[in-house]
Computed example of a mutant assay.
Amino acid sequence: MPLADWVSMDTGQSKRELRRRILAARRARSAQERAAAGLRIRDAVLELCAATGSPTVAAYYAVGSEPDTRSLVAALAARGHRVLLPIVTPSGDLDWAVYTGPESLAPAGHGLLEPTGTRLGADAVAEARVLVCPALAADRAGYRLGRGAGCYDRVLAAAGEQTLSLAVVYDDELVDAVPVEPHDRPVRAVVTPGRGIVWTHHR
């Protein structure tokens, strides 16, 4: 379906259609492509974190067909950053705990791996100077398409004013526009394997 067709749909319908298309395309990517994308994303984010001097970084541990962020998480910790990873609570909000290595993770629902350390509360994300968010697509205005639960919109609302928020997508998932609803919160940059850090209108 051409971009113009789903933009003209009802917002909820267009989000569902775009999610369906992107998830199907992601499933078609090889493990090698996902891993290679992850290494390029890792390098771009590491350079940014070094430039900002961020002691604490909030990130996530990618699963399935997502662009790989596991090498990023490991590299951040190896460089001395305090890395916060999310824990999905029964309410659907995210709690946070510190990543201290692969052994500090345990399986959770939907194939996720979550940190097993002390839970720091939802507000801990405000301590992060850099916040790395998952997304299915993002646009140059900074709006991201998530999976529909809204948890990262709430995280973005709770982040500190100085937090540099990034959405992680593949190159072709950085699009002209994504469907936007009133609760959607923008990010300040998008990172893709081929383009590196792309600043949005909300920089």
Rank of each mutant, 00 (worst) to 15 (best):
A4D: 13
A4R: 13
W6C: 05
D10E: 15
T11I: 13
Q13W: 10
R16K: 14
R19G: 09
R20Y: 06
R27C: 08
A28P: 03
R29G: 02
A35T: 10
A36T: 06
A36D: 13
G38P: 01
G38A: 06
G38W: 00
L39W: 10
R40Y: 05
R40A: 13
I41A: 00
D43P: 03
V45N: 00
V45T: 05
C49Q: 10
A50N: 10
A50G: 12
A51K: 12
T52P: 02
S54C: 13
P55C: 11
T56G: 08
T56D: 06
T56K: 04
A58C: 09
Y60D: 02
Y60V: 00
A62K: 00
V63R: 09
E66G: 04
P67H: 04
D68M: 05
R70S: 01
S71R: 10
L72C: 03
A74R: 13
A77D: 11
R82A: 08
V83N: 02
L84D: 02
P86C: 00
I87Y: 01
I87Q: 02
V88D: 01
T89V: 11
D95A: 06
W96L: 04
W96R: 05
A97H: 07
V98S: 08
V98E: 15
Y99G: 04
T100L: 10
T100W: 02
P102V: 11
S104K: 07
A106S: 14
P107W: 10
G109D: 14
G109W: 12
G109V: 15
H110C: 11
T118D: 14
L120D: 09
L120S: 08
A122V: 12
D123Q: 14
V125G: 05
A128D: 04
R129T: 13
R129A: 15
V132E: 04
C133I: 02
A141E: 15
G142T: 00
G148I: 12
G148H: 09
C151N: 12
C151P: 00
Y152V: 01
Y152G: 00
D153S: 05
V155P: 03
L156H: 03
L156V: 08
A157K: 11
A157T: 14
G160F: 05
Q162I: 09
T163K: 00
L166F: 04
A167C: 11
A167N: 07
Y170M: 03
L174Q: 05
V175L: 13
A177F: 10
E181S: 11
H183V: 12
H183K: 09
V187S: 01
G194C: 07
I197G: 01
V198F: 06
T200R: 02
T200A: 09
H202S: 11
